[in-house]
Simulated scan of single mutants.
Amino acid sequence: MVQAKTELRARARELRLAGKTYNEIVAELGVAKSSVSLWVRDLPTPAPRAREHCRAMAEARWAPYRKARDLERQATKTAATNEIGELTDRELFLLGVGLYWSEGSKSKAHRPQEVVIFINSDPSMIDVYLAWLGLLGVEPERLRFRVMIHESADVAGAERFWAERVGVEATSLDRTTLKKHNPKTVRKNVGENYRGCLVVRVLGGADLYRRIEGWWCGIVLGAKRTA
């Protein structure tokens, strides 16, 4: 027993001289922190480690937990995706009405206008919206597309991305709207994945707008009846 304790003490001192912290020595030797403190208290305190080294140690410690969490998250998303299956026309129709009424332009009492304009930065939302317009029989030639993006971003790259996404030539897009950069604002939407928003406008959309508004009223009444 005494021999084992002596060996642990010697090993603790070696680790301390190598720059290990009390917690690291405790983790490696499986002894009490008070014992480590007693064994190495006469040794100089190790110099502070570089920030990169500390970050690497933290990453190594938490990497297994993050991996397990990511696997669990992906499994949940996959299972939920499979629950949806193929949409019926009616399901897509109702989904599209709700999507437009939450994200599309609406006529206001102080600014009455019956136009069908949809703006979003999420490509998948644009995909669903265009599928809905197709279900309604809106011809492709009635659609106009325009990019809205900060002037400091990759404007040309965003135009190419959105044009390819909706299946048109970049040259056919309406003139891009550039948002002025405010140096005082700390923006989070930066980087190569920032592509601004796409504006989708339906030409001659007054009648369609009125129907959308009516469909939404019908959904609200239907929900109240089932409540």
Score class of each variant (00 low, 15 high):
G167A: 08
E59C: 12
Y194D: 11
G19K: 12
S124L: 11
R61C: 05
E28A: 09
G214Y: 06
A18Q: 06
D154Q: 02
S102W: 12
N82M: 09
A68V: 07
A170L: 02
A60D: 08
L92A: 05
V128E: 03
V2K: 06
E83W: 04
P48W: 12
K108G: 14
S35V: 04
T76L: 15
D174H: 06
R11G: 01
Q113P: 02
G167E: 06
N182Q: 11
G104A: 08
R66W: 02
L99I: 03
G167L: 10
G222S: 04
R55M: 05
K67H: 12
W132T: 12
V168S: 01
E24K: 06
G30Q: 13
R111V: 08
D127R: 15
E164N: 12
V97Q: 00
F145H: 04
L38F: 13
T76N: 10
G191Q: 14
E59L: 07
M57I: 07
I119D: 00
P123R: 00
M125S: 10
E192N: 10
G218Q: 08
G96V: 01
V97R: 00
Q74V: 10
W39F: 04
D42H: 14
G98D: 02
V168W: 05
P183E: 09
E159N: 06
G85R: 13
V186R: 13
